[in-house]
Simulated scan of single mutants.
Amino acid sequence: MPGTGRAAAWAARGRRLRASAETRLPVLTEVANRLLGGNLLDGGTRLAAQAFLAAVPLLFAVAAFAPQSVRDQLRDSLRAMFGLSGRSDVELQQILGDSADSELRETTGAVGLVVALASATSFSRAMARICERAWALPKSRTRVAVWRWVVWLLVVLLAVLLQGPLRDGFGAGLWLGVPVFFLVSTGIWMWTQYLLLVGRVPWRLLVPGAVLAAAATSALGLTARLYMPNALNRALAEYGSLGLVLTMLSWLIVVCAAITFAFTIGAVLAQEPPLSLYLATKDEVPGDAGTDGPTEETPAGNG
């Protein structure tokens, strides 16, 4: 049939074009294959959900038990991250201020602390799986990785507390805050990958993904100061606290998806020419035996 012959011809032409693209543009082809076939958006969404489940109860725990200086620092950092003003800033002040009933705060703080502790390791594991899938590595054994999850969480909490002075350039303004935030973010994202991958990938190979993740989070950080205040205040006015939750979760999905894509693209760039010629040697092939202990036989795409 003519239609069948035409379809076969188009299919053959598509295969030739794909083979040509794989030969001429191996990096772009591999990036496209990873982005389309790795369920990256699903991974980013799960990471955002775990981050939200850990962050919200932890916020109430900090409000209940942390010293006033720590609460003030956290409030300033959240203001710097999201440019909070108006009603959303008032809501934050009510949570972290001294106006709430002390007994109620201790009750909600205790519940929040229990929930945060239960959710925290899930957040760490989700980030570890993002890193492992980017490099097509199997899961690390729990006994090898568990202390790394805890250390990573503590450093993330410290980084959040320092967002205020970092983004403000330690008082100098955005002209210094933006490059400082980018440099610190690059270091954090490179260390994050190395730690959660259990040292199975050399530091040099982690640079592209760290730079891309830092660029994405820096750009989104600047965007948040422009977009989030109006979005949060409008959501609060129209839907109350539910609107606040949905807006924050939506923003976390965007940020976590950007980090997921950055790590994956960075892994491809580091393993393909021309960067691989400068970053890796023949003995530094990700997926070989780990440096810190054995790994499970679970394929990297599962779990």
Rank of each mutant, 00 (worst) to 15 (best):
I130R: 01
A280D: 02
W203E: 07
L246F: 02
E297G: 15
T298F: 11
L58V: 12
Q271R: 08
L35Y: 07
D168E: 14
A120L: 04
L47E: 02
G97A: 09
E22P: 09
G209F: 02
V114R: 07
L196M: 05
S85D: 14
L40F: 09
Q94F: 15
A159D: 11
G5V: 08
L197I: 02
L196T: 02
E297S: 15
V115I: 05
A100W: 02
A213R: 00
A12Q: 12
R24E: 13
F60D: 00
D292I: 14
S20V: 06
T142Y: 09
V146T: 11
L92H: 03
V178S: 05
G112K: 00
Q94I: 13
D168W: 06
L242H: 03
L226N: 14
D292R: 13
A172T: 14
V150H: 08
A215W: 06
W203C: 09
T29G: 12
R148A: 09
M248Q: 10
L206I: 04
Y278I: 15
V90P: 07
M248N: 04
P274H: 04
W149G: 03
P26R: 04
V146R: 07
Q271C: 07
L269W: 02
N233D: 15
L53V: 05
D42S: 15
D76L: 13
A126H: 04
S99C: 14
Q93W: 09
A136R: 11
L174T: 08
A145K: 03
S20I: 10
P294I: 11
T217R: 01
D89T: 02
T107A: 05
A257L: 09
G37E: 06
K139Y: 08
L17W: 11
M1H: 14
D101Q: 11
S77C: 12
G301M: 04
L58H: 05
L277C: 11
L232V: 04
F60K: 01
T45D: 14
P57G: 01
V144E: 06
I130P: 07
F65P: 00
G287P: 10
R105G: 08
W10R: 13
S77Y: 04
N230V: 09
L166Y: 03
R204N: 05
W251C: 01
E106L: 13
S122V: 08
F261I: 13
F123L: 06
R129G: 09
R75C: 10
Q68M: 05
G38Y: 03
P294C: 10
E272Y: 10
P179S: 04
G287W: 09
R129V: 12
G199Y: 01
A110T: 07
F182W: 05
Q50C: 12
R200E: 10
T4Y: 15
R79N: 12
D283K: 14
P202E: 02
S140N: 11
V201Q: 00
V268D: 00
A258N: 08
F60T: 00
S77E: 06
A213D: 04
A258E: 03
A9R: 10
W135I: 04
T281Y: 08
R125Y: 13
A262C: 10
G169H: 00
A210N: 03
G5D: 15
R18T: 14
L84R: 01
T108N: 06
R148F: 14
A300Q: 09
G240A: 01
F170A: 12
F170V: 04
W251L: 00
V201Y: 00
G83V: 01
